[in-house]
Design a protein around this nucleic acid. Structure first.
Lengths: 253, 253
DNA sequence: TCGGCGACTGGACCATTGATCCGGTCACTG
DNA sequence: CAGTGACCGGATCAATGGTCCAGTCGCCGA
């Protein structure tokens, strides 16, 4: 390693002058923008999980020093917030065609859930205010669709929140349970539950560990229940019911 | 401080012999058990939040050195897991009196939610397998009650998960939104949303920021929807409906 | 042509944190 | 009273988030 080491301290010059490539200190990669950082952060998070994301590792992947990142980003939390918002861009906002509000909302929620599961680290980050443009756009669609469907105020907030919270909770639990130490913790937990069978009879027989898998139908069922409840509220109140132009509303009522 | 300092290194002797109280190196507090650690951890978490919990601070509050904690506990995550399970002991498990399954489940879920909101740090920790005895006991009650009510398998898991996920998501969002930088971030967010009013019209008019507060009725509404859906499933399937001994089931069907 | 200015980069450095090493102390037993 | 095992803690390590400040590069006005 030819101990040039920390003694000389010549910042910027990576070796002798003769070895230094011309122009921009070498390295022809795009000049490191906030977007590139976040993009790479998402890749790193996808690949190695939330706790393996450090500023140094991220910088290394980007071919720069860790300090440089702080010029584009104030703190590490910024990176996380930006990454969280970025993946929400993957959720396609359903076009407001004539397929009714239920179809639109179902599509949105399903896409939302798919994204959260595709990036398992995201579930653990949901405990922070989500105010990025992509998140807001999806929420806007949700509120707008519910409004068009005729949902009014005491129930409007409940519906929007209920749906969001349901997705978030489901994704959080599922990705926790799946990603966290695959097949090892789960078997240990199963064993432990079977050992205490007399203490938790129902849980041991029908618990989440017994029926491993098939989260999808369970999720869909719960979603249906919520939507049914919302729809029933519209029918009861009755006002502005078919301002939505959705045939689905009338059909199911 | 009379620089006796790090030079001498006399472990265990906190000062001269004359100053040392007799017996057990002084300090008459109970001899530091795992329970006492977790108890204090919960107190610290309640008082200062999740990110202020360090092993050193915790040890300081307990009047010991940080190293000692690792004799009772393997890692910091252990402390968090134990703390999370400990607060669930506060949730009273409803007695199976004749008030029907809906009343029991509602009571459980409400208690659950109350605890999560009373200890706001807990919401952020939900992204880890919850296998403590207290959590398991509550889940056991949930499953047992649903089984007694006559909910069968495709819908059983969906019901149990749906309810849990709904509480978790709701508590996560609410305590995030409330605890996180009170009244400052919220106003900034409100402002930002009002600024982009034309981009997010529905959100700005009826968003979570507009109708600040009254989370309770919203939560109750969503819970009703879920319970209605579960109940409808029982009525449809019809088998083993009144094996529960609950009068409520028959009454509402 | 040149001086400098602003955008950007990174090596050294700092404080904090989780965790470990290892030399202790204490109550209790034979 | 020696010995044993439960328990304690100062020093220390490695990793991490974040800052300081000395640099480099492209560009723009004089």
């Amino acid at each position: 390693m030819s101990k040039r080491g920390p003694a000389t301290h010549r910042p910027g010059s990576a070796g002798d002058v003769w070895l230094r490539p011309p122009g921009r200190t070498g390295r022809d990669a795009p000049p490191l923008s906030r977007d590139r950082i976040v993009e790479e952060a998402v890749a790193l998070l996808d690949a190695e999980g939330a706790d393996r994301l450090t500023m140094r590792r991220l910088a290394e992947r980007l071919g720069t020093g860790s300090t440089t990142l702080y010029w584009h980003v104030k703190t590490k939390d910024d990176v996380l917030d930006l990454a969280l918002d970025m993946i929400f861009a993957e959720v396609r906002i359903p076009s407001g065609d004539g397929r009714g509000w239920r179809a639109g909302i179902t599509a949105l929620i399903d896409g939302w859930r798919a994204v959260l599961l595709r990036h398992p680290w995201s579930a653990a980050l949901l405990g922070r205010p989500m105010l990025g443009p992509n998140v807001l756009a999806r929420s806007e669609f949700l509120y707008a669709t519910l409004l068009e469907a005729g949902v009014v105020e005491p129930r409007l907030t409940a519906a929007a929140y209920g749906l969001s919270n349901y997705v978030i909770g489901s994704a959080l639990m599922q990705s926790t349970w799946l990603a966290d130490a695959d097949e090892e913790v789960r078997r240990a937990a199963r064993e432990r539950l079977r050992a205490d069978r007399e203490r938790y009879p129902a849980l041991a027989a029908h618990g989440p560990l017994a029926t491993d898998g098939d989260w999808d139908t369970g999720f869909a069922l719960g979603l249906t229940w919520l939507l049914d409840g919302i729809e029933a509220g519209i029918a009861t109140t009755g006002d502005a019911a078919d301002a939505a132009g959705g045939t689905d509303t009338a059909a199911r009522a």
